[in-house]
Simulated assay, not measured.
Amino acid sequence: MQVILIQDVNNLGGAHELVNVKSGYGRNFLIPSKMAVEANPSNLKQLEERKKQLAKKEEKLLAEFNSVVSVLHESPLKIGAKTGTSGKIFGSVTSVQIARAIREQKGYEIDRRRIHIIDDVKELGNYKAKIDFGKGQEVEVDFEVIAE
C-alpha cells in the first residue's frame, strides 16, 4: 500500500514523502492517527503542488539568507566592553551582546540562541562567532571587542 506522509514518522520517512507500507499498518495506524493519507490520484496531485510551493519557499529563503550573509561579511561588528588597565575586559562578551550589535549595526534581528562564540572572549581584539540559520546553513561572523 502506498501512502503519503503528512508528518515525519520515525524509521519510515519525512513529511510529504510517498512510501510503501503494509496494508494493515497504513489502514489501522497511519491513516487514523492523521500521519498519512492514501496515495490516490487526487492526493498525489496535491503532493506535487505542495512540493512546488515548498521549492519556491526554499528558494526565497535561500535568497534572503544570501543577502543577510553578504551584509554580515561587509565589515566586522564592533562590540564595546569595559576594560581594566591591562586590556582584559570585565566579564566576557556573550551572544546577547553580539545579537544586539547585529541589530544595531546591520539592521537584522537574529535570535541569540542561534549565535555560538567560538573562543572565550576575555580580552580586546578580533574574534569569530558562528550563526546557525538552520537546515545546515551556518555562517562565521567576525567581531571586534573595543574599549568602551
Results as ranks from 00 to 15, higher is better:
Lys135Gly: 08
Val121Lys: 06
Glu144Arg: 09
Gly125Phe: 03
Asn20Phe: 02
Glu104Met: 12
Ala99Val: 02
Glu74Cys: 03
Glu64Lys: 00
Lys52Cys: 06
Arg27Gly: 05
Asp132Val: 00
Phe29Gly: 13
Arg27Gln: 07
Val37Phe: 07
Leu61His: 06
Val93Gln: 06
Arg112Ala: 14
Lys56Met: 13
Ser75Trp: 00
Arg27Phe: 04
Glu49Gly: 01
Gly26Tyr: 01
Ser86Val: 04
Glu123Ile: 04
Ser70His: 10
Pro32Thr: 03
Met35Leu: 14
Ala55Arg: 01
Lys135Glu: 15
Ala81Gly: 09
Lys78Cys: 08
Asp142Glu: 12
Gln53Leu: 15
Asp8Ile: 01
Val19Phe: 08
Pro76Lys: 05
Glu74Asp: 15
Asn43Thr: 02
Ile89Asn: 04
Lys22Phe: 01
Lys128Thr: 10
Lys45Glu: 14
Lys88His: 11
Val141Asn: 08
Glu58Gly: 15
Leu62Arg: 09
Gln2Asn: 08
Gly24His: 06
Leu54Trp: 12
Val145Trp: 07
Ala15Trp: 03
Met1Tyr: 10
His16Asn: 15
Ile110Gly: 14
Ile115Cys: 03
Phe133Ile: 05
Ile4Glu: 07
Val9Met: 13
Glu17Ile: 01
Ile102Leu: 03
Arg114Val: 01
Leu77Gly: 10
Lys60Gly: 02
Gly13Ala: 06
Leu54Ser: 08
Met35Arg: 11
Asn20Asp: 13
Val121Thr: 05
Ile102Thr: 02
Asn10Asp: 15
Ser23Gln: 07
Lys78Asn: 13
Lys88Pro: 07
Pro32Arg: 06
Ile79Trp: 08
Asp132Pro: 04
Lys22Ile: 00
Ala63Glu: 15
Gly125Asp: 06
Val21Met: 11
Ala129Cys: 15
Lys82Thr: 14
Val71Leu: 13
Gly107Lys: 07
Ile146Met: 10
Asp120Gly: 10
Glu109Ala: 04
Arg50Gly: 05
Val37Ile: 14
Leu47Gln: 07
Glu109Asp: 11
Asn126Glu: 06
Gly91Ala: 08
Leu61Thr: 01
Val19Ser: 14
Phe133Arg: 05
Arg103Lys: 11
Ser33His: 12
Lys135Leu: 07
Glu104Val: 10
Gln97Glu: 10
Val141Gln: 10
Ile110Lys: 14
Phe29Leu: 12
Val3Gln: 03
Ala101Cys: 02
